[in-house]
Amino acid sequence: MKRFYLFGFLLLMAFDTLSQVSFKYAGSQALPVAASMAWIQRVFGQPWVYGALIGYIGAFFTWMSLLKHAPIGPAFAASHLEVVSVMLLSIWLFDEPLTLPRVLGATAIVAGIVCLGVAESHQHHAAAEPGTTPN
C-alpha cells in the first residue's frame, strides 16, 4: 500500500508540474487578461492549454483513486510538493531567478507540508493500534 501511495503521489506530482508549466505558457500567450470571450478564445487558440488539460485530467483520475483511501488534508498536502519541481523548472524555462524570499517562502511551505504529512502518519499509526491514545 505504501508503494501504491508513493507511485500515486509521484504520478500526481508529474501531472501537476505539466499543468503548471502549460498554464504559464498558455496564459502568457493569451495576454492581456480580460473577462471576455476574446480572452477565452486566445487561451484555447494555442496548444499549451491542452497540455494543461492533459495534466489536469491525469491528476484528476490519480487524485480520485488516492482519495478513496487517503484523508483529504494530507493527500492534498502531499500533492502540493510540486511547488519544488515547478520552481526549479521555472529557472530553466522562464529565466525566473531563485530570489531569497522565494527560497525562504518555499522552505517554510515545504516544512509545513512535511509537518502535515507526519501528523497524518502519526494518526494512522494511532488508529491502527487500538488502545493507544490518539494524539
Binding site: 503548471q20 498554464f23 504559464k24 496564459g27 493569451a30 487578461v33 480572452w39 515547478v86 520552481m87 518555499a106
Partner: peptide
C-alpha cells in the same frame, strides 16, 4: 482563473 493569475505573476511565485 488560474491561467489568468499565472499570466500576471512569475510561475515560481504563483505556485508558492
Amino acid at each position: 482563473v488560474w491561467i489568468a493569475f499565472l499570466s500576471l505573476v512569475p510561475l515560481s511565485e504563483g505556485v508558492l
